[in-house]
Each structure stands twice: as structure tokens, then as C-alpha cells.
Amino acid sequence: MYEPKVIGFLCTWCSYTGADSAGTSRLKTPWNLRAVRVPCSGRVAPELILRAFDQGADGVLVLGCHIGECHYDSGNHRAAKRIPLLLSILEFAGMQPERLRLDWVSASEGDRYARIVSEFVDALRPLGPNTWRISGAAPRTGAAIGVPLPLVSGLSGGAPCP
């Protein structure tokens, strides 16, 4: 069975702490997810998600605080508007919608964190590797660490406006 590579954008206050609490509770969590800590789910710009897919991620999971519990009052409201919009565009552009998911995990919900990640990875496995790229290029393998990479500036992929 194919083992998908998953990038998780975890907000530092709720879901990152929730992941911690899953660990301290010794809950089994799939190893497929690599966490990128962000201050808030509102920080997750669409370009970052596209970048992840472009760099070979098979799935992206964005986790924030529950609605109404955002550490920054309403940053997660932004995520709640932004991610579904991005998902609908990606789906239109031919990506399988199962590969991007937004959900909420509070700091104390280690069990919920473990469950969401397991579900997400389980759903990705039958899909196989992600062949979808912004540039349409073939999946890249074996990138070196620390090589400076050009920023993805948007769906166009072109140079940023002045």
C-alpha cells in the first residue's frame, strides 16, 4: 500500500498543542504527517499549500482552533473562508479534493488530532501518489535540503507585481 506524504499546517495555540497532547497521551498517530507550525490557521496562505503540493506532498491538512476559540479572535474565520475556496479551485483544476482538508483541534483534543490525521491518511492511501502540479511538471524526487527555492507567488506562477 502506498504511504502518502502529508504536510500539516498546525496552529501553534490549539492544534500544535493538541498534537503534543496526542503524543504525551501516547496515542498512535500516522507518521506520514510532517507538521509545519504556524501562529494561526489564518497565516496559511494559499500559496503555501500550492507549494506543498508542487513539492510532492500527497495531502495537506490545515488544523486550527475551533471557531470561536481562536487565540487571535478571528484568524480561523479567515482560514474557514480561504481554504474551502482554494479547494474548490483546485478541484476545478483537476486535483482530488480528498488531498486538502481543513479541520479544528483544540489544545486538549489529542484524541481528536490522532483521529483526524488517521482518517486523512487512510483516505489518501488508496489515491496513490499525487500527480497534480501547478506547473504540470512530473513529480520531483530527491530534493536537497537547504537549496534556496523561488517563491511561488500565486496561481499564475509568474513574477510578482511591482
Binding site: V36, R43, L48, R51, I145, L151
Partner: peptide, 23 residues
């Protein structure tokens, strides 16, 4: 951009994470 969480830093982090899986 957000100091300590700007795009370069986040992209480097996620590229690194994916590279680690590849390795």
C-alpha cells in the same frame, strides 16, 4: 510578512519536511 514566520522560512520548512520523507 510575519517575522519568524515569513514565506521563506515556512517554505524552507515544508520543503525540508518533504525532502525528509523522500530521503
Amino acid at each position: 510578512s510575519l517575522i519568524h514566520f515569513d514565506d521563506r522560512e515556512l517554505i524552507a520548512e515544508l520543503d525540508g519536511a518533504l525532502a525528509w520523507i523522500d530521503a
